[in-house]
Computed example of a mutant assay.
Amino acid sequence: MVRISVPTIPQATLSSSLAAAANAISPKQATERIADFLGGGNVTVITGAGVSVDSGIRAYRGAKGRYLNPNYQPIFYHELMDESEKGFAYRQRYWLRSYLGYQPVRDTLPNPTHYALAALQYKSIVPQLITQNVDGLHHKALSHVWDQEQLKQHILELHGSLHNVHCKFGHVVDRDTFQDWLSIANPQWKEFMDNMEKTGQKPRTNPDGDVVLEGARYDDFVVPPCPKCREEGRDNNTQKPELIFFGESIKPEVRQRSYKDIETADRLFLVGTTLATFSAFRLLKHALELKKPVLYLNVGPTRADGLPGIEKIEIPSGLIMRDVVKAVLATDSVYDPVVGDMLRNGVVKPPPDDAPDS
């Protein structure tokens, strides 16, 4: 039996003085260096959970690289898809927690980093963006100027998306519809969620939409069956969001495209990611093997610390990325109304610091 574990940053990296010591650099110096790196264009960008923190979505790990929620226990792919009673119980647990956690993620808005990267994509400085995030915020930042086909061509969701659900036989439904099905099947939890909205007392939500729900019972939660399967004469409630669970393989076409996005770029820029998951770390390794210049913008230790060929800047992206875009695009940042609008937009409401990274 293959042992599957939650991806982590090696303890040796967390403990090393190299990982702990931030590179001393001012916002002005960081802006100039990143602008110089991006200025030639044809840059592929990889983003992680740190990019969405200013939007109010907590990252998995804090500035010291450790999990912000030390009791984090994700459900693995083989558990969710298990056809036994145990698997059914896992699905009850997952869908109850995700039911409560999806709405806050769905309603989250892009922050200045999302819009800064959107401006660079809009002006073709960044032809391809690969995100590990499943929140759809990169799409939201560009959806008023690009159609769905353009978004699909230029943004690759490496780990999938929270915004669609599919059953084990491949029938797909949009997540809002599935949320409605869950509400109808579980009126008591719909009332609970409505009360949360009224009081503002929302449970702690992870970047994948899963919530921390202490002491809850899951055995009475109803996971609705797939209606398409019923039309085809079978009863099936084995359904999952279109995101990649721990222990699940990335689709071959996604993996192939991610490699191509690295290969066709002149440079690689990483933002807000520890690269703890191998699916993203191997893209960095591929870029290094191809001798692509790599610039890394992240606060805290990462899986890549100590690797040769990487330049790292430790400063919050939200502090500098607007200025980076202004430096890269020069007069376009003033006279292009689309770019100007992007640089004026973006929420800044990071989650409360209720779980210190100690």
Score class of each variant (00 low, 15 high):
Thr31Asn: 04
Gly200Val: 05
Leu297Asn: 04
Arg322Thr: 14
Val126His: 05
Leu38Ser: 01
Ser358His: 08
Phe192Ser: 06
Pro301Asn: 01
Gly40Lys: 11
Lys123Ile: 02
Val126Met: 10
Ser249His: 09
Leu158Ala: 10
Gly39Val: 08
Asp219Trp: 05
Ser161Val: 11
Asp174Arg: 10
Ser143Glu: 14
Glu157Thr: 13
Ile250Gln: 07
Phe269Glu: 00
Gly56Leu: 10
Ser98Glu: 06
Asp176Tyr: 02
Gly200Cys: 08
Glu32Ile: 13
Leu151Ser: 10
Val51Ile: 15
Asp266Arg: 05
Leu109His: 10
Leu307Ala: 04
Asn69Cys: 11
Trp189Lys: 06
Asn23Glu: 11
Leu14Met: 08
Met1Val: 12
Met342Asn: 08
Pro127Cys: 12
Arg234Gln: 11
Leu307Trp: 11
Pro227Glu: 03
Val51Ala: 01
Leu38His: 02
Asn236Val: 15
Val212Trp: 05
Asn195Cys: 07
Ile25Glu: 10
Arg58Asn: 12
Glu191Pro: 00
Phe245Cys: 05
Glu253His: 15
Pro337Tyr: 09
Ala141Trp: 02
Glu83Leu: 14
Arg322His: 12
Ile310Thr: 10
Ser143Lys: 13
Thr302Pro: 00
Tyr122His: 14
Leu284His: 03
Lys228Gly: 01
Leu343Ser: 03
Met196Trp: 05
Lys28Asp: 14
Tyr67Leu: 03
Leu288Lys: 09
Gln153Glu: 15
Gly62Ile: 06
Lys251Gln: 12
Leu329His: 00
Cys229Asn: 05
His154Thr: 12
Ala141Ser: 15
Asn133Gly: 13
Ala30Ile: 03
Tyr122Gln: 06
Ser279Lys: 07
His139Glu: 11
His171Met: 09
Thr264Glu: 13
Gly41Lys: 06
Arg66Glu: 01
Leu243Phe: 15
Ala141Met: 06
Pro227Ala: 09
Asp235Met: 13
Gly215Leu: 02
Gly40Met: 02
Phe245Asn: 01
Ser258Arg: 03
Gly136Ser: 08
Ser52Ala: 14
Ile155Pro: 03
Val254Thr: 12
Pro207Ser: 13
Val2Lys: 13
Ala265Met: 04
Gly50Ile: 00
Leu156Ala: 07
Gln148Val: 10
Tyr60Ile: 01
Lys326Ala: 13
Ser15Gly: 13
Lys198Arg: 15
Gly346Ala: 03
Arg322Trp: 02
Gln92Glu: 04
Leu156Asn: 04
Glu248Met: 09
Pro227Ile: 04
Leu109Met: 14
Lys190Trp: 03
Asp82Gly: 11
Thr31Lys: 09
Glu311Val: 14
Glu157Met: 10
Arg344Asp: 09
